[in-house]
Every structure is written in C-alpha cells, then in structure tokens.
Design a protein around this nucleic acid. Structure first.
Length: 940
RNA sequence: GCGGAUGUGGUGAAAUUGGUAGACACGCCAGACUUAGGAUCUGGUGCCGAGAGGUGUGCGGGUUCGAGUCCCUCCAUCCGCACCA
C-alpha cells in the first residue's frame, strides 16, 4: 500500500474541521500554555515558503505541549487594516474591505493546507467592528488616564483633577507629567484651577492624558498623505513604499509612551527574548543620564526674549564635567527661541538658514552628516559659573526632538562640536588632559571619559567620573540646573490621515475633543465615495456624508495606525467572542501572558514595543493581571530564495552553460526556478517562457545539459525565485513540507531555500510508512520488541524531548530519520515501538500519524489526547564501550572494553594493546588520561 | 562609528557539559532491479596521497592531556542603530 499523502491529508483536514478537534476551552484542571504566532497582514501575494516557517515551529511546539498534557492556546487571526489594501482601493476603487476579505480567504486556504492546530473559533480580524470596538475602547481608556510619577503608574484622569483641585500644580512634577514634546504648563494654585473655565481646564488636562492631541514635530509623508510614527520611517523614507518624509509641526493624536520609558527598559531584564531585540529596544529607548543646565540670556545683545517670559536657554548634557570648556551654545533650527533672540543684524542670515534646513527632508539631513552648517545668531548667554559671554549659534546637527533641542558645545571633548568649531573658527579650550595616552587636540577632540580636569575651577584635578558628579551637585546646589535622565524615545504619533483604519473615537464640541462613551462604540468606519483626501486636504473620512456625533458634532477625521490593533490582539484571543468586555477577567486570569511567541525580528521597535506599552497600561488600570505580554520570544530567521541564472551572450540569442560562461562576454539573466531542476535547465520550457527565446541557442556542458548558475537572494516575484507552499504540498504533501521547513536548519538562522532537499524528507516519510506495510498491507506484531528496537526508540524519545525543549526542530527531524533507518534495518514491526514513534512524530507530521494511529486501532482523532512517550534510561544501558584511544590528543584506534572497569584497569588494557605499542613508537608514556565511558588519551 | 549575530565538505547542516569533527539529508560516483520514475535498494564520497599516512572547523596566537566549543588579536559576511549632546 502506497503512502497516499493527498488522500490522507484531505481526509484528516476534513475530520479536524468537522470535529473541532483543536477547539480549546478554559479547562482549569490542566495547566495552560499559550503559544502565539505573529499576526499576519493578509497581503495580495499570499504566503511563500518563508512565511509559515515560524507557524510550523509553533505548531509543533503546541502539539508537543498538548501531548504533554497542557491546555494549549494556539490561535490565529489577521492584522487586516493597513496601507496596501487602501493603496489598492485608491487605484481600483474597490472597497478595501472586499480585497481584504479575498486576501484573508486565500491565506486561510493556504494555512489550512499546512495542517495547523489553530482554534479557529478564536480568530480575530482587526478590521471587524466587533474587534475594533475594543481597540477604540482601549484608546478611550488611554485618553481618560494620566501617568502619576508618584505612584509610578497610569491612573484615572480624575485623580489628577483632584490633585489640581486640592493643591493646584504645586508639588506635581510637571516636567515628567507632560513629557518634553509640548510646552510646560505654567504653575497654578488650586484656586486658580477652580476659576478656569471648562475649556481651559480641559486644555491643561490634555497635557497629561496618555492619548492626547498635541502639537509636535511629526514625520509627514506627502506621498502617502499621512503622518508616520518614528518606527515607520527607515533611513529617512517611509517603511512602506520608500517615500520621502519631512519634519512638520502638526496637531496630532499621540500616545504618551515616553511615560513608560523606564519601565519598558527595566522590563527587558525579566523577559526571555533574544539579546539582539532587547538591545534594539534599549537603543530605541535610548536612556542617558546627565543634567540640564540653564544658560541665562544676555539682554544687552541680540533681541532677547521678545514677547517671552523665558530668559534662559536650557541644554541637556551627559558631560557636565566639561562645563568650563563650553565655547558656544547651539540651538536646533526649529527651536522656539531662535527668532526671539536673534540680533537684527543676523536676522536675514538666520531666517534663510532656518528656512533651508526646514526644506531639507529627513533623508537629506541624514545623508549629509559630514557637511557642517550653521549660523551665528548675534546673541549671547552667560556662562553660569564664570559669567563669560558665550555666543549662540543655530545648527541643524542639533535635533529639536532630543533633549531640549539645545546643546552646550564643548569642542575639545565632543566630535561634532569640534568639527563645528574648526569649521567656523571658534576658539575653545581643553578641560580634560588624557593620562598616558597619545593625543593631539589640534587634530581631534578627546572624547574618552578618562583623564584629569584642568582649566575648570572647582573641578581641577578630578577624574572625569568624579567631575561629573561634583559638577551635577554644584549645578543643582546653585540652581543652575538639575540632574536629569533623558530618553531618545519619542511619543508615538497615533493619527493617520487615511481611510482603512480604526476611526479614533473622538468628537469635537466647541473645538474641544471629547471621547465617545462606551455605549456609543464601535464608532463605525463610514462609507466614502473615494479613498483620497478631500480637495482642501482633509483626510478621506471628511468625505463621509452625514457623519456626525449625535447628528451635531464633528468626529475626529484621522484613523489609527496599523499597529493599534496588533498592540492587544493576543488578549482578544483569550476571549474572542466577548461582546461585553475586551477580555473577560476570568479568561485573562487563566491564560495569563504568552508563554512562547514566535515571529520575525523586524517588529523590534514597533509592534513589540507598543504591545508592551499597552500591556503595562492595561495592567496599571487593573484590566489584565500581567504587565509583560510575551514571556519568551523566538525570532525565526528569514528564508532566502535561491535564484537561478542563465547566461546570455551579449548581442546574440545564445545562452552559455554555467561552467563555460567565462569564455564568453555574457550577462546573467534571472530564470524562473520552476524551469530548473537541480540546476539543470528545462530548455523546452525556457523556449516557451518568452517569445523572444523560442529559437534561442544553447552552449551546453559536455553531457549535453544546460547548467544554471545560482545566487541566494530575498524571495521576490521580480527574481523569479518565489516558492509557494501550495505547489510543494501538491507534490509532496503538507507533512513533508512541515518537516522539510524544519530540517532546513536552526529556526533562528537566516537560510536559503533549496527545494532539492525536500525529496530526502519525502522519502523518509515513505520509509516510515513502509515500517507499517512491510508486506504491502498494514501489519504490526504484538510480539515483544527486540532490545535494539527498544534502544532505538528510547534514544529517539530522549533526543526528541531534549530537542523540543530547546527549540531545536531541525535536529529533531534528523533523529526521526536515524530512528526510522535503524528500525528498518532491524526489520522492526513491533506495535509497541511503532505506536510510540507515531506519537513522537505527531507534532511534526500530524496527517500521516493520524492515519497510522487510526490503522493501529485507536479511536479516530484521539491522537491529540495521547501521552508523549516517556524516556526510560534502562533501555540505553550498555555493558561495553568502544573507547577512542588517542595519542597526544589524536584519535588512532578504538578499543572495546566493558564499562564496569575501573580507571586503572582501563589504563592497563590500553597500554597492553598491540596497537598502542605501535603508536608509541618506542616512547615511554608520560601520562594516561582515562575518562570512563568517554575517552583514553595517552601522552608521550 | 556603535551594537548584535554568524563563519565547519560541492550544498543545507550536526557535534546540548571542553572528550571519536562532518551525524542526518541533498548532490555526486559506482552498482542492483528495472523497462525512463522526480521510484526503490546496496556501496562509496572533507581535502592531499597509489598507499602507509598527512592534513582539516575564517586568519594568527593562548589556556589544556585534549579546543569547532574557553580566552586574546585580526578578517569577512549579514542584521539593527547612527549628528542622540
């Protein structure tokens, strides 16, 4: 009987669906285990073989845990809002909901074919009303919350109102509360607060809400017609589409993730994630310790603080030890004070410089970091200690979004300041002298944090480390500034001027934004006639007809970004059908956080940071019982394509085979991998591929075949190297595909896809099948299994358990191969052994094992309730061992000795062996190392 | 520039605690059965060498009886961050 994978796999797919085999409930009699896959965005292209890699691994692990007796939550859903569907809608006029629906059903077909054990009753889609109702609800929770630095957690905004009513803003650390994007609110007393009208009060509260409408510099992408969050901008262009991005001051909905900067950083210590992702998040959060220093403005020169109460410039520095080396102060071009302080004589130059920097895109600014530019404002500040006058410059090497948007420039000890000073010929002095190190201040800055302070008044003679703390305490003592921790992390812009996303549940009354009440949710995405901005540049939602709150108030017109829905989807899976709560308390209590999360590392600074932020917030507000969403994460490596090439001789319609190509003047051309088998080109198919090749000539190898060259590249349509799971499942079956994807190499490693090897795995499954069909018909014996068979079985059990526990899926497949090879050689036909092996293999190859399980006489579909085989050491006990005998560390021969010999006896046996005499070549052994059961090493 | 990861046959890789390097598979070579099938089976296959043997885990050094594994220096590739004060 042949291994008919097509019949078998179709049969079991049908059975699992009909019987809801993989449905899970909150069974408190079992321990839970939560295995999560990263949310796919259902793109039009469907899945290629790289996508399911992580899904297969997590599926194997889920099935293993089920067989181990755990109650495993293993769900799947779709991140179905997003730009590509909307771009497609703009081009074709088709509603994005329709294309999304089509893409999802294609994804579902593909996923189903692979045989995953998802509980589809828990499927979620971010674009469904039932789901985004709760995304909106969470937004409202954020809107109604503030971050209390005293309790160090998010609280209801009501508790802030109470503070204001009782104490005003005294005693509350405004700087921390408002972050540093917006301007600080001037302090007020309780009475002043009470005397404010509602509008004014709400304006002040807006500075504290965790979801807030604020004016800030945002990444504006005009090609996409929307703002983008920092993580959506890569190298100064949009992540999606690669369009230019510029900085623009805009009023935008943002989330105050900065309030959680320290907790997001600290939490990394407690979770089991790859070091590289943790490091990326640390960099992104970018904590630096230092202090802020106030430099009083000089009123006599420049146009000091026109119409402003501010009479100082605040800088942030991590090197307060170099305070006496300050040569100038530089402001970012966008800094508030620039035009308030610029002297009339410099106004023209400053204006043109600022205009020029504003017009440069982010990309340009980043691309030319080596070009130094800047302009003097004509204004000065005083040095807080020496009271010397220090010139104020504007330079675009200072970023408005970092620190205070102003730096104290110390050319002697900072590279950028050094270059700037050299370029503009600004005088400076050295305040740190390196000890025992070659250094020439005329050539470069001394930026190491070592050396002795000089020219620095009270800091003279101190080391850098001592000087930093002394400087900070002196600066605080004299009120020149204060110690401060600064983060690179920015608040996340949350509004998008796009159609295909969750409407932000806000309406405006007298221009004051109010959140919808829970009973008015969901705020449905309205229909529009076009998916483009309006003629006056308003977002697409402005096209919606009669779309008003209570027929009266305007709704917010921007929608949420793609990452909104994916920031909490793992919670919804726990209770996907709940219409009263985003997740029921009991269900969240039972499932807790994700035990194993498998996905790509490309979401390091986006999704993975936002999901942590939302979890911490929901935890603070008592909605979920944990603050870190994903306890352990594994990042699967990318699967690269293996492109094939033919070599066209320039100027001719003639192709030359790989090994002969050097002899001709030719160019490589990508050729579709479906026409290439084991690097041999199917010439007929190639001629049919394109009309211009129909009469192409070929210079072949000696054996008459045309051999293609290859290169490893990303899979893409344009390179004709995309391999879809569908074709492979059609040819070899899902079980083969699953095992082959695992067999390819370690899960976390980037690796090339090579279809050739798949036949090896397929043969293995056939060989496994043959174990049960030795004579052709299905047949197993009840007879006592042989010792060797039991040894093979238990060796495999031990190996598989070890491999699964350390997520080494590739070595697991090898072990099955070894096991089946050995059992075949032994002609093992024992029911006991083969049944145990069947359970062992069930996580990897669920279809074939179900079929065998049924044939073995078990209840149909009961395999998922079997117990994973236990390892018993007693079957592995051996009485003798082939000792490798080494001489000076080099293995020379093997010696079979009983394992119960003592070290001395082993040494004696080894030294008396005739081969030993030969290898000693007359030398006297100096030392003999004996490790029982391992090795003998003779040193001479 | 900073940070992370990775370097082992023709290819994908294995070696989990420092103890027989290259398991398992692809490919290749030889053969069997065949009647052409992407079928199955047997044997071989790191490199050099006819062989004995030598040599071998990116390079160079070190620790050790013994190093792919630990330490130091360097090189290469990939990924992330990058005027972050």
């Amino acid at each position: 009987m042949e291994y008919e994978f097509k019949y078998i796999e179709a049969k079991w797919r049908e059975f699992w669906t009909q019987n809801e085999t993989y449905k899970v409930t909150e069974d408190t009699s079992k321990s839970k285990f939560y295995v999560l896959d990263m949310f796919p965005y259902p793109s039009g292209a469907g899945l290629h073989v790289g996508h399911p890699l992580g899904y297969i691994a997590s599926d194997i692990f889920s099935r293993y845990k089920k067989l181990e007796g755990y109650n495993v939550l293993h769900p799947m859903g779709y991140d179905s809002f997003g730009l590509p569907a909307e771009q497609y809608a703009i081009q074709t006029g088709q509603h994005p909901a329709r294309t999304t629906e089509q893409n999802i059903s294609r994804y579902r077909d593909q996923l189903d074919k692979i045989g995953f054990c998802y509980d589809w009753t828990r499927e979620v889609r971010t674009s469904s009303k039932e789901y985004y109702k709760w995304t909106q609800w969470i937004f409202i929770q954020l809107f109604n919350s503030w971050y209390n630095p005293m309790s160090n957690k998010a609280e209801d905004i009501q508790s802030l109102i109470e503070i204001f009513e009782q104490h005003g803003s005294q005693g509350v650390n405004l700087e921390i509360l408002t972050g540093d994007i917006e301007k600080n609110v001037a302090p007020f007393t309780a009475n002043q607060w009470k005397s404010l009208d509602q509008k004014k009060q709400l304006e002040i509260l807006m500075n504290f809400r965790l979801a807030y409408l604020g004016e800030s510099f945002v990444n504006w992408c005009s090609a996409l017609g929307t703002v983008l969050a920092n993580d959506e901008v890569v190298n100064g262009v949009s992540e999606r589409g690669g369009h230019p991005v510029e900085r623009k001051l805009m009023k935008q909905w943002s989330l105050r993730i900065t309030a959680y900067a320290q907790r997001l950083l600290d939490g990394l210590e407690l979770i089991d994630w790859s070091e590289s992702i943790k490091e990326t998040q640390r960099n992104w959060i970018g904590r630096s310790e230092g202090c802020s220093i106030f430099f009083p403005l000089d009123a006599s020169k420049g146009g000091k603080s026109k119409g402003s109460s501010v009479d100082y410039i605040e800088v942030f520095t991590t090197r307060p030890d170099t305070i006496f080396g300050v040569a100038f102060v530089t402001l970012a071009p966008e800094h508030d004070l620039v035009f308030k302080i610029t002297a009339p004589s410099q106004l023209e130059q400053v204006t043109s410089y600022v205009a020029k920097s504003k017009n440069r895109s982010e990309r340009e600014r980043q691309a030319d970091v080596n070009t130094i530019s800047g302009v003097f404002t004509g204004a000065y500040v005083y040095h807080p200690f020496t009271e010397e006058l220090i010139p104020i410059w504007v330079g675009d090497y200072v970023l408005v979004g970092y620190g205070t948007g102003a730096v104290m420039a110390v050319p002697a000890h900072d590279e950028r300041d050094y270059k700037f000073a050299k370029y503009f010929e600004i005088q400076f002095k050295q305040v740190i002298i390196p000890i025992d190190k070659e250094h020439n201040i005329e050539k470069e800055a001394w930026t190491e944090k070592e050396g002795r302070l000089t020219n620095s008044d009270f800091l003279n003679g101190l080391s850098v480390k001592e000087a930093i703390s002394k400087a900070i305490s002196e600066i605080s003592y004299k009120n020149f500034g204060k110690s401060r921790v600064n983060y690179r992390l920015r608040d996340a812009v949350f509004g998008r001027q796009r159609y295909w996303g969750e409407p932000i549940p806000i309406f405006y009354e007298n221009e004051i934004p109010f959140a919808l009440s829970e009973k008015d949710l969901p705020l449905n995405l309205p229909e529009v006639d076009k998916y483009l901005p309006t003629e006056d540049g308003e977002p697409p939602l402005a096209r919606a007809k009669n779309w008003k709150h209570k027929n009266n108030c305007e709704y917010e017109l921007s929608t949420m970004p793609g990452w909104a829905g994916s920031s909490w989807y793992f919670l919804r899976y726990m209770d996907a059908q709940n219409s009263r709560e985003f997740v029921g308390k009991g269900k969240a209590e039972y499932w807790q956080n994700v035990d194993l999360y498998i996905g790509g590392s490309e979401h390091a600074t986006g999704h993975l940071l936002y999901a942590r932020f939302w979890s911490m917030f929901l935890f603070d507000r008592g909605h979920i019982p944990f603050d870190e969403p994903f306890k352990k994460m594994i990042n699967q490596g990318m699967i690269l394509g293996r492109s094939s090439f033919v070599y066209l001789i320039i100027g001719e319609n003639k192709f030359v085979s790989h090994s002969l190509k050097e002899k001709y003047n030719c160019v490589p051309i990508h050729v579709d991998i479906s026409m290439v088998d084991n690097d041999k080109l199917d010439i007929k198919a190639f001629r049919r591929w394109r009309p211009e090749y129909s009469d192409a000539q070929f210079i072949c190898e000696a054996d008459g075949s045309y051999i293609c060259g290859f290169e490893i590249e990303k899979m893409s349509k344009s390179k004709y190297n995309v391999q879809t799971p569908d074709e492979l499942i059609d040819k070899f079956g899902a079980d083969t595909l699953r095992m082959y994807e695992m067999f390819l190499g370690p899960l976390e490693q980037t690796k090339p896809w090579d279809t050739n090897g798949i036949t090896g795995v397929h043969s293995f499954l056939k060989k496994f099948w043959r174990l049960f069909h030795i004579t052709g018909a299905f047949e197993v014996t009840e007879a006592e299994p042989s010792k060797e068979a039991m040894r093979t079985l238990h060796k495999t059990i031990k190996k598989l358990r070890d491999d699964l526990d350390r997520f080494s899926f590739n070595t697991g497949v090898s072990s099955f191969m070894i096991c089946v090879n050995e059992l075949s050689d032994q002609k093992c036909n024992s029911r006991h052994v083969l049944e145990q092996l069947t359970i062992l293999m069930a996580p990897y190859a669920p279809h074939i094992t179900e079929e065998i399980w049924e044939k073995l006489g078990n209840d149909k579909g009961s395999l998922i309730r079997a117990s994973y085989p236990l390892f018993d050491q007693k079957y592995l006990v051996e009485s003798s061992f082939f000792y490798p005998v080494s001489f000076n560390g080099r293995m020379r021969f093997k010696l079979n000795l009983p394992l119960d010999l003592s070290k001395e006896e082993i040494q004696k046996e080894a030294l008396e062996n005739k081969d030993t005499v030969k290898w000693l070549e007359g030398n006297i052994p100096k030392n003999v190392i004996v490790v029982p059961g391992k090795i003998i090493n003779i040193v001479f």
